[in-house]
Amino acid sequence: MDKRKTVNYAKYGYIFSIPFVIAYLIFSLYPVLYTVVIGFTDLHGLTMKITDMRLMSNPFQNYIDVLSAKGNGSFRLAFFNTVIMWVCNFIPQLFVSLLLTAWFTDDRTKIKGQGLFKILVYLPNIITAASVAILFQAFLSYPIGPLNAIRSGFLNFFDKIFHFGFDGKTYNFLNNKNFTRGTVSFIQFWMWYGNTMVLLIAGVIGIDPEIFEAAQIDGANRRQTFFRITLPCIRTILLYVLVTSMIGGLNMFDIPQLLNRGGPDGSTATTAMYIYTQAFRNSEYMYNRASAASIIMFVIIMILTVILFYILRDKDEVELRKIRKRERKALKR
């Protein structure tokens, strides 16, 4: 028998996957399962041993505790904050990125210096979020700080014209709930719109130019071309941006944690901060409650991801079917 023919290459597929599988089992799958288990137990406190951990009399008690509490420091408020701050960042982000994409990919506008612009607006994305949060905290500092100086300057200027009697007092921005939330959203926007724009431009450049030519011949104006051709063609990338931004947004931690430690009155506390606080900053070290909250977030993220994966996969299959049809037709001919 020829020796070479008996070499079974398939086994190398398994062998080369082993490191990944082992590392995944130890560092990801086991922790996930462990987190699920802890969520149903009474494991809390720094000194409590895992062997002493017992199932709750009502296994879902931690989930009930997490979901039923209201007000400052609760999961509900944290979830509300997280969603609000993500939405307030994502909608303007998408709007600005789409607008810039439309300008930059339009032959008629011909913007110069695009490369430099992309490099500059992408810059904040690369910087440590923790540093950015503290930088903005310094800008908003009270009683004296850069933003307060700008505010006082403006008010003094208008006071000279309108005489509404500005008392010269400075404002504690980080004591205002909505201003602090807005700041978190703004920082997220500022850090991520460059990234979104680069992705969308890449998507538009990837569109077959013949489609645009056909539209031009058919007399489509700029707006029609953008809404009827460009947007539908970059749907996959829009979905990709949406899903990655959503997952990132639902796990927001660094910026609200360091900007104002979730304050004022828990108005910028996020679900990731809730998990962190319950497990590591609560004097009782509520690992079980933190696990339950993690699993709730895990399920929410999973559901949303599955929905988006379904949409993505569906589109690919439709395209595949079309290609197969074409191939079959070509074969018949």
Binding site: P31, Y34, T35, V37, I38, M297
Partner: peptide, 9 residues
Amino acid sequence: QCTLIGFFK
């Protein structure tokens, strides 16, 4: 984040 508690323990 979702696996953090189990990972930490």
